[in-house]
Amino acid sequence: MGVRRARAEDLSHVAAIERSAGERFRGTHMDWAAEAPPTGLDEFRTALARGELWIADDDAGTPAGFLLACPLDDALYIREMSVRRDDQGRGLGRRLIEAATAHARAVTHRGVTLTTDEIIEWNRPLYERLGFRVLDEAELSPGLATKLADERRRMPASARRCAMRLDL
């Protein structure tokens, strides 16, 4: 299992990975996420061209996870990270975040940011173990504040969104 920069042929796997990862939300307050449509391929193509899309391969060399990112304010923003349901718990998410963090350092971003559900038992705790912290509203950069507000407006009332940051 390894993590690498995405290649064009990997794009044919991302929707299936996203749908599989969404299955973990069934039976939770985020059950709606399992039915959400996958992210559009144009967003993946843009990140691929920027070098801000990473793939985690399974033991057979097949894409099993991805991390999609983009620059936002002074940081690299993790737009989405998904790992196939059967491959979760094997360290792929951690490795994807490590790859994105190394990239952020190399291009001199001052941090890595993301938004996530604050109460689901596996999202926020994973990021906290990796050094991220929940941001107070006053700490939000303008772009991150806009993203968080948009998510809170678009998502069902059951979504409990927060913003997190890893300072570099």
Rank of each mutant, 00 (worst) to 15 (best):
P71Q: 13
R105F: 02
W54N: 02
A49G: 12
W54G: 01
R24W: 11
S20G: 11
P38F: 09
L126I: 12
M81G: 09
A36S: 14
T113R: 04
A106L: 08
L68G: 08
I119T: 15
H103I: 00
L76I: 07
D31P: 09
R105M: 00
G27N: 03
E137S: 11
M81Q: 13
T116F: 04
V107Y: 10
L130Q: 09
G51N: 06
L126R: 12
G93V: 07
R124S: 10
R85V: 02
L96W: 09
A56E: 05
G27R: 03
R110L: 13
T39R: 07
W122A: 08
G91Q: 07
G65Q: 12
W54L: 01
G143I: 13
L92N: 07
T46C: 01
I119Y: 07
A145R: 15
L41W: 00
I55L: 05
W54S: 02
Q88H: 06
A60M: 08
A69M: 06
V83R: 10
D87I: 00
A104I: 08
T62Q: 11
G22V: 07
H29M: 03
I55N: 05
Q88C: 05
A138I: 10
T115F: 01
A104C: 04
R84K: 13
M30H: 05
G131Y: 02
G93H: 07
F25L: 09
T113M: 06
A60H: 13
G51S: 05
T46G: 03
H109S: 15
T101S: 12
L114M: 11
E98Y: 04
G22M: 12
D136I: 00
G22D: 11
R95T: 05
A100M: 03
L76P: 04
M81W: 09
E80V: 03
H29T: 08
T108K: 14
R129Q: 15
D58I: 09
L76W: 00
A75G: 15
R133E: 14
L41Y: 01
I119W: 03
G51P: 04
T116K: 04
R105E: 10
G93P: 10
E118R: 15
V107H: 12
I97R: 02
A36V: 11
V107R: 14
F25E: 07
G89H: 14
L48Y: 02
D86I: 01
T101P: 04
D117P: 10
F44K: 00
A99N: 02
S82F: 05
E118K: 14
I120A: 08
A138Q: 15
A47Y: 10
A49E: 15
R85H: 12
D42G: 13
R50V: 00
A64I: 04
D86A: 14
I55P: 06
D87N: 06
R50T: 02
D57P: 02
T113Y: 08
R124M: 14
D59K: 11
L72K: 10
W122T: 10
F25P: 14
A102S: 13
E98N: 02
I119F: 05
F132Q: 13
R79Y: 11
T28N: 05
A47Q: 11
A33T: 07
L140F: 04
P37V: 05
D87K: 10
D31K: 06
A60T: 12
D42V: 03
E43F: 03
R94V: 05
A104W: 01
G131H: 13
E139N: 04
G40R: 13
R50P: 00
R129M: 02
E43P: 00
A69L: 11
P38R: 11
